[in-house]
Design a protein around this nucleic acid. Structure first.
Lengths: 338, 338
DNA sequence: GATTCGAGTTATATCGATTCAATCGTCCTC
DNA sequence: GAGGACGATTGAATCGATATAACTCGAATC
């Protein structure tokens, strides 16, 4: 269990000063070719690896970026994270991923961790509407970019998709295929994405003069929750059942689909289903699932670019809001019955 | 852009020494209740958050654990990561997740990052067979546990599933339903999991006296790669086509399923398919996919426990190998045609 | 030949939390 | 009332990399 070598050891072996070693490591100042070679050889033979804690303490900032997501089990967020990761790599930064699992306490604990780490920047898909912690982070000088959420509250740059529009698109599609008793299945209404999609959906209904939207709320947007919600619908009198379902994300929709199919309900003939996110698995589901697509990887890239600009100080003084447009992906699950 | 408060500021405001602040923060030594209260109030009013880089520099080790996975886009690995994360939280440690994407260069770069961070421990699903870097990490005193791979090479504790047995189970199942011309679709044979599953499969064939297994290798195990491999099979003369496919993971299998169905091939009647991992989406696929299940979350938990024991020094001197048993999940995609 | 210049190098202060030997009180014991 | 004993607190040293001001030495300039 040998002790790790440090710059001092490297300097001694290469017969130079620690300052020179640092210059070789960071390329901040010119170093004579011969000297550089000696230093690199010393690093090699000692197996020296820079202690980032020391570097960070001195420099005052980490080379890491923190990212808070609502659910790592949801392919939407892992795709997002990959877009971010690929983009950060270009400026040799890396990502610490935190999973709040839609839980405010877990979110808080990760934000605290990120703050202790003095991350260079933060990408957040917040659980709730309160931004106290984020304000604090920013006051400390840490750039924050909201992801998948328009930065209306508080002044933060943001990358988002027009969720209200997405809700409209989904419900308009259901209306277009002749459905008149839609039900919305969503996660906690405290999650902004959920309530926005719901509002969008409701706006279509009021215009079309259709009965108000039935709403089923589940604390968490997983496939299990979707199955569970479907059970609730199956317990209704057949005459009371909806003829179509708009689920706030694809995991919910896939769970619903599975439970309905198992119970002998025909999709889309008896009940049509449309989801949200267009994750990869939506298209290959038992009944290929209609969904509202978001340009996931691109959103991650855009978010990372906004953040990088703020970190490097190349961003303007104004906060930017990049808003992507959602897109309908109509598939079998909302086909018009023959 | 105020400068962050440090322990010195807190100490001054609470009228104590920095040592006392540290004791309150870490609970290392008893502090009088009144003093503690003053310190906590000072922390509150200053909005002080400990600088972890400084802490880590002094202590010599981080509270983070690194984890290298082959593909974050694969639900198998995110489930694994959640098992790890949940378990690490019990000892208030957290996780940095690195995605090698089955690429040795990316793996190397993440391992370097983890080494710079002086992570407390490392969980690795390695891409290749070489363990130089891991040996170095360990020589430096960082515990390493291999995940999803038996630690035959080099002395590392490990958590794994008997992949050879899994391959046997899958192919035996295909033989049991009467298939005689199976094809194996896998990722790079440099990935140990792939070659083990293949070996297991081949061992069944030689015993059953069936023609040797056709093998299609793709560099990466994604659904796209699966679709691509299926195209290759579709280009064959119908008489040359396999009657069954064993895919090295479910993503590949789902891609294959999609391409075959689109081309009008009936599954399972014309070609039966079995995958591996039993990810959530396997059961809800267009044709519910048979698969070989691994106890994913439990593997993550076991790995985190082994690692935690090594970090805390409560592990014995012997390296441990936890081996889980794979389990057949037979579904529609390998049903015996009526 | 003296002076300036500049590339290369060095020595040292610094970042902020933790640690540990030393100190300070206060109470207890004989 | 002296001497311990013990709990609470202090303050300086420390971890390792980086930044900066100072310095060296040879070449160019006049």
């Amino acid at each position: 269990m040998m002790v790790a070598a440090n710059v001092r050891d490297v300097a001694a072996l290469a017969r130079v000063s620690v300052g020179t070693v640092s210059n070789v490591l960071n390329g901040t100042k010119k170093v004579a070719p011969g000297t550089e070679k000696r230093v690199l050889e010393a690093i090699e033979t000692l197996g020296f690896v820079r202690n980032d804690a020391a570097r960070q303490l001195r420099v005052g900032q980490s080379r890491m970026v923190g990212m808070m997501v609502l659910d790592v089990g949801n392919p939407f967020f892992t795709d997002l994270a990959r877009g971010v990761e690929d983009t950060l790599a270009l400026s040799s930064r890396s990502l610490i991923l935190g999973n709040s699992a839609e839980d405010a306490a877990r979110e808080e604990s990760y934000l605290h961790l990120f703050e202790e780490q003095r991350v260079a920047g933060l990408l957040v898909t917040p659980v709730s509407r309160t931004t106290d912690r984020l304000e604090r982070l920013r006051r400390r000088g840490t750039p924050v970019v909201l992801v998948d959420r328009f930065g209306g509250i508080g002044d933060f740059s943001s990358v988002s998709v027009d969720d209200r529009r997405g809700g409209q698109i989904a419900l308009q599609h259901l209306v277009d295929i002749g459905r008149v008793r839609p039900t919305f299945i969503g996660g906690s209404s405290a999650v902004v994405q959920v309530s926005e999609r719901l509002h969008g959906a409701q706006s279509v209904l009021s215009e079309a003069g259709i009965a108000p939207l039935r709403v089923i709320e589940r604390p968490y947007m997983s496939a299990d929750a979707g199955r569970d919600a479907a059970e609730e619908l199956l317990a209704l009198e057949p005459s009371e059942r909806p003829d179509s379902i708009f689920a706030a994300n694809d995991l919910l929709a896939l769970g619903v689909l599975q439970a309905l199919t198992r119970a002998g309900v025909r999709v889309p003939d008896d009940i049509a289903i449309i989801g949200y996110d267009d994750i990869y698995f939506a298209a290959s589901a038992a009944v290929p699932l209609s969904s509202v697509r978001q340009p996931t990887w691109g959103m991650g890239k855009a978010a990372a670019e906004l953040l990088t600009a703020e970190i490097d100080g190349t961003a303007g003084s104004e906060f930017q809001h990049v808003v992507f447009e959602p897109e309908l992906m109509a598939r079998e699950s909302t086909r018009v019955p023959a």
